[in-house]
């Protein structure tokens, strides 16, 4: 297996995640895009772990950790989104501009 294949797939996935983060208005969609980016990283980790034959399996173990952290992040993120929704009645990014210069 050429390492380039998973690396390129990961790069494309990451870029798509970037696009989603930058272009989507809905906060939940942005969260999904963040998940895409995290998965791109996971793919990289796994591929390089396999390539390097790491005795400690650090790539795969870290992938597991990232998955766990991503789950926690989604939980917290959704809680924040819900809180924002309750107080602002909106979860669109461009309507949450209280921090802007007047």
């Amino acid at each position: 297996m050429h390492v380039v294949y998973p690396a390129v797939v990961a790069a494309l996935l990451f870029s798509i995640g970037v696009y989603g983060v930058l272009a989507r208005r809905n906060t939940i969609l942005v969260l999904m895009s963040v998940e895409l980016m995290l998965n791109a990283v996971n793919l990289n980790l796994v591929a390089f772990d396999v390539w390097l034959r790491d005795m400690l399996h650090s790539g795969q173990v870290l992938t597991l950790f990232v998955i766990v952290i991503a789950a926690a992040e989604v939980g917290i993120g959704l809680a924040i989104v819900l809180a924002v929704f309750r107080t602002r009645k909106a979860i669109e990014f461009d309507r949450l501009r209280e921090l802007g210069e007047p």
Partner: peptide, 17 residues
């Protein structure tokens, strides 16, 4: 430049990236 600080976090991230 203060006009750039319009509160839209996506714009900030775009600039950052």
């Amino acid at each position: 430049t203060r006009h750039l600080q319009n509160g839209n976090a996506q714009l900030y991230v775009t600039g950052l990236l």
